[in-house]
Nucleic acid binder design. Structure first.
Lengths: 261, 261
DNA sequence: CGGGGAATTGATCTCAGTCAACGGTTGTGG
DNA sequence: CCACAACCGTTGACTGAGATCAATTCCCCG
């Protein structure tokens, strides 16, 4: 299965993870319920509210946010097409953060998918794929901790842009290292713990360095791999290695790593 | 079940989450395998290495770390007694980070526990409890993103100490707001993205403010709730609210929140 | 009783925050 | 179709939190 042009982003992510036969993807998509659309700016879930409906983003960007006492807002993470929203195997956990729409967003209900995974074991191909995706979501979160703990503003911004680039690429939304970035500089600053003014300066810096080009909301990373080396970015492992040869129990830790993007 | 004195930290965490009948806890403990001990400083898992053995910390502190190219080390998170190590429902995911022992550590094997959870649905009380714990781990991670994105060094440090305090309290390791903190100032700095020198200054500041007392590795938070308000800290929800009245489908979002610690 | 890591303190410098102003774009209503 | 408002991006000047460099001092531990 590699003709992914018509697939939903979630299927593309799974197919990218390890080439999956099309019947699995078809089954996956059948487990997704009806879609709903949500206007830019709307709040889809609120911190503490118990979540009844796990969902998947079909289209659009969302972000997880947190409101501080003093009124400032923090952005804790970005949710892109193919990402889960409020997806947990436990049927009734409260949301950890607010989740709001950055753009107009189309969501698909994933209740049936969750139930299916709970019912079958982790050997089922659909369940296995989804569990792996959940692991990748965790890797993405870890990467953002890496980014925030690392100090320079330049590195932080580059690191975030590389992350978004890679994630969008897996969802099929990057062409020639070019993608839509529907975030204001304000929002980028809130995600990186930087002031708008400084964020702007660092962004200009990236442009002057020839790492970045921007026209409207369209961002082009000019030499992503050079930049990646420069800021020591490691992509989450979006692809699995080729399946192990049968009966290979003692594969070395080294070669058993996930392949990088 | 509230006589928790002899229980392993994992059971205490679960019992704290929502009072659990003792047979569930007994079953849980029976699903934990033999224990192993690991000396201070040793590396228990390495980034990228496929994990075969999920484990639970019985005793000691660990931390998840990441090595930067330039040789600096980042601390991405702390693992305390009762926390899972490399626990994922998928049987073969690569570790996202290094995991190393801060102190001598005792781990219990959780392979059987994982298999049990995969086999039964999320309605099983043991599975349900563990899934909730996994959700809490996620909340802890979110809290550390909040901490790192929020700016002042003072707030960050206080925020981290409050987090550790609360987590240890749930594991039964805090008495009168006093607990052991086996971390060097170097390590604290690495976890907060601060230089040792500055971390030291902020720590003195906290002492002068009367928020903190320190003797050797023992930390006492003098007025945790005042400090919590001061730095806008929200504890992860370690306790569930009382069970819903039967058949109560339309409980309001507000009252359906988890109770705070 | 030395030796080495950890904690503490001082001096200096720089990155990034804050305040403030101004240009560009969008969108909305008259 | 124009005018105004609101928001976003950009730039300058100034300030301050926190990094870096460099010494001590304090504990453990062998």
């Amino acid at each position: 299965m590699t003709v992914t042009s018509k697939l939903r982003p979630i299927s593309r992510r799974i197919d990218a993870l390890s080439p999956t036969n099309s019947s699995t993807l078809t089954r996956l998509e059948r487990l997704l319920g009806r879609t709903t659309t949500h206007p830019r700016g709307s709040l889809v879930s609120e911190v503490g509210a118990v979540q009844t409906r796990p969902q998947v983003i079909v289209e659009g960007w969302m972000q997880r946010t947190n409101l501080l006492q003093d009124g400032r807002q923090q952005v804790l993470g970005h949710l892109l097409p193919g990402d889960f929203v409020n997806f947990s195997l436990h049927p009734a956990v409260p949301s950890l953060t607010n989740v709001e729409c950055v753009t107009d967003v189309v969501l698909a209900d994933a209740t049936e998918l969750r139930e299916h995974i709970a019912a079958v074991g982790p050997d089922d191909p659909v369940a296995s794929a989804v569990l792996l995706l959940m692991g990748i979501d965790e890797a993405i979160t870890m990467n953002s901790i890496v980014r925030l703990t690392r100090q320079s503003a330049y590195e932080r911004l580059a690191h975030l842009l590389l992350d978004l680039h890679d994630r969008l690429a897996v969802a099929g939304l990057v062409e020639d290292d070019r993608f839509e970035l529907p975030l204001t500089q304000q929002a980028l600053g809130e995600a990186l713990g930087l002031s708008v003014v400084h964020l702007n300066r660092v962004l200009m810096q990236l442009r002057k360095d020839g790492s970045l080009d921007r026209t409207g909301r369209t961002i082009t990373l000019l030499e992503p791999e050079r930049l990646r080396r420069r800021v020591d970015h490691t992509a989450p492992r979006y692809r699995l290695p080729a399946p192990f040869p049968a009966g290979c129990a003692s594969i070395s830790a080294r070669s058993a790593q996930f392949a990088t993007l």
